[in-house]
Design a protein around this nucleic acid. Structure first.
Lengths: 146, 146
DNA sequence: TCCAGATAGCTATTGCCCATAACAATACCG
DNA sequence: CGGTATTGTTATGGGCAATAGCTATCTGGA
């Protein structure tokens, strides 16, 4: 089975030589894959991230979560509402204006299922990388944004 | 100047240990930076990518460009229209249904300016990465999506 | 030569994600 | 105690990408 016909032209393409461009493409491709798997749980990546952070940090507030994940407060509202509507999180008043977030039992189950999918996916990602480059990816990436 | 007040809580956050998550965050952060710089030229990243590919491949078609960049044919239309309206590209009929894309003089200038910004940015990106990890980023990223 | 299937370019539409602005209520700090 | 900062929220808009569908055209095999 030939990999190229009349329509798959070999094109001069310097873009993959640019780390920024490859970063963009790799992120897009992997996000699509992981997103499809998490969708089987009715979760998006950002939903899973929120569940994981709540699990690790009982009684966080929505604002603190947003700061950690770089999500605007305003955009946390529909996100948390969805998780609340599905019975995955609970909110308890901390004081007159803040509310503590915590996982329900269902939320913990869902979070653990998501974590399983995520870890399996991460393993697959790393497996695609030639061994000599593998351990350098995470520290290199984290140097770019943390 | 303290880096933490009452509101910047130290949170347990296992997410940056996940390559997929760090990939997402790094891509988002770097895209925002590069995007802001290219905006000074009135270009988005995808616009610059298209200009670069046309420069390297005279007379490509919109469809071939879309395949190379993973952009739907339908979404190439407004993209190319914008570049056309700004006088950066020209279209010449190849046959009854295909059209060849090429840069105008203004398009080449704009493309070279964008390339300057991009290369400078790429250099800065790499400079942020500890030397021992630096050369591994590109091959690791490309292993994830190519 | 002719025709079925594939392709090109395009329109229209939709949903999703994110940014911004604004607001009332509340908490904090000097 | 009073000004300032923060919280949670609503409303809104823009940008981007995916989908479906359409017409015209090209291609390759019978």
């Amino acid at each position: 089975m030939s990999n190229s016909n009349r329509y798959t032209v070999i094109m001069r393409d310097p873009l993959p030589q640019l780390p920024g461009y490859s970063l963009r493409r790799a992120a897009h491709a992997t996000a699509a894959e992981l997103g499809a798997r998490l969708a089987t749980l009715g979760l998006r990546q950002v939903d899973a991230s929120v569940l994981i952070l709540i699990a690790e940090n009982a009684d966080v507030t929505a604002s603190a979560l947003g700061r950690q994940l770089d999500i605007q407060r305003a955009n946390m509202v529909p996100l948390l509402k969805k998780l609340d509507d599905e019975g995955l999180i609970e909110r308890q008043p901390l004081d007159g204006k803040s509310q503590a977030l915590l996982l329900t039992a269902a939320g913990r189950e869902r979070m653990e299922a998501a974590l399983g999918i995520i870890h399996e996916f991460e393993d697959e990602l790393l497996a695609r990388i030639p061994a000599r480059h593998r351990d350098h990816l995470l520290p290199a990436l984290n140097a770019l944004w943390r």
